[in-house]
Design a protein around this nucleic acid. Structure first.
Length: 316
DNA sequence: AAGGAGATCAACCGCAGTGGC
DNA sequence: GGCCACTGCGGTTGATCTCCT
């Protein structure tokens, strides 16, 4: 917590009033709450003044958004929310506001704190245990750690990657990731050098091996969803069934009401980039490229209100 | 019971984007 | 185009809480 509200002399457009800083008192909360409920949102500077608060508009906005809003869900995060945060973070990076927008009743600040205090620590512990001498070479035994035969990247490893990304750069924009990948040196380096500004998965064949003979890897969520061990786009480049025995068909399941559909070519990821030749068979050696600069997260997630899993599915 | 260490989280800070003049 | 006010975002701080010794 902050020290008790002090009084800060600060000139602004409210005149030279003494603006309070620090913790909000119950009286201030009540003033702001009453004002907001009766007048609704507007210019925060005006709100601060009209509500009789000796606070700057910015402080009022923060207090309302993070604490007073009636639709806020208080209390600890559920396991489902935690999984969702981890997944969304793998896609969006530290875009807390966008993550919060997909978690009803949660604020970006809350999620950010939860990530930094709890999840990040947990992933760090994972690194410690995974990189310990006994575990340093990523066993492919699914019975012991969930990795899939064939070496496909697992959910745990996926988180590990994200943590590595975090430790390299706190801003996980596509470009910064790419810069990090190409410039940073760290112990666990799953990505080979990248060419141009595209991810070219053919240079890293070992990362994209697939489960065979029905060896399906994934997570069955308690809300009914099934997530294979391939998740986001930004940090996770795993692709299923590229050397499958035949009719592998790559689809994005956005959990639309009618099942699955392909992201059309108007969107940033082009269907043709995922066209594996006749009958949708993967023709080995073809490049699958994702122009990272073209990734449009808003478009990608536009139709994903609460369960934003972008799954690959294999129709066989 | 005391106190030290680590965890938690409310709030602040600085910056970037936007819109109006 | 430049300036200013405002908003929103992500990073950081620091007081308090909780656990451990």
């Amino acid at each position: 917590m902050r020290k008790p509200a002090d009084q800060t002399e600060k000139g602004n457009n409210m005149g030279n009033v003494k603006l309070r800083k620090g913790l909000w008192s119950p009286e201030e909360d009540e003033k702001l709450m009453v004002y907001m409920l009766s007048n609704g949102q507007g210019c925060w500077t005006d709100i601060a003044r009209n509500a009789g608060l000796q606070r700057c508009g910015k402080s009022c906005r923060l207090r309302w958004i993070n604490y007073l809003r009636p639709d806020l869900k208080r209390g600890s995060f559920s396991l489902q929310e935690e999984e969702l945060i981890i997944h969304l973070h793998s896609i969006l990076g530290n875009r807390w506001s966008q993550i919060a927008a997909r978690l009803p009743g949660r604020t970006d600040n809350e999620i950010k704190n939860f990530w930094n205090s709890t999840i990040k620590k947990r992933l760090k512990d994972n690194i410690t245990s995974t990189t310990s001498p006994n575990n340093s070479n990523f066993s492919s035994d699914p019975a012991t750690n969930g990795f899939i035969e064939g070496g496909m990247i697992s959910f745990e490893e996926h988180e590990l990657l994200n943590f590595c990304m975090d430790s390299i750069s706190t801003t996980t924009s596509s470009s910064s990731i790419q810069n990090s990948i190409t410039s940073a040196t760290y112990q666990f380096d799953p990505f080979p050098p990248l060419h141009d500004s595209s991810y070219d998965i053919t240079v890293a064949p070992s990362l994209f091996n697939v489960p065979r003979d029905g060896a399906e890897g994934g997570i069955i969520h308690d809300y009914g969803g099934f997530e294979q061990y391939m998740t986001g786009f930004e940090n996770d480049l795993s692709v299923p069934s590229l050397e499958n025995d035949g009719n592998a068909k790559l689809m994005f399941d956005k959990r639309s009401s009618n099942g699955k559909y392909l992201i059309d070519s108007d969107q940033s990821i082009k269907v043709e980039d995922f066209d594996f030749g006749n009958n949708n068979n993967w023709q080995g050696g073809q490049n699958l490229k994702m122009g990272s600069d073209q990734l449009d997260w808003e478009s990608l997630l536009a139709n994903v209100s609460f369960s934003p899993y972008l799954d690959f599915q294999i129709d066989q």
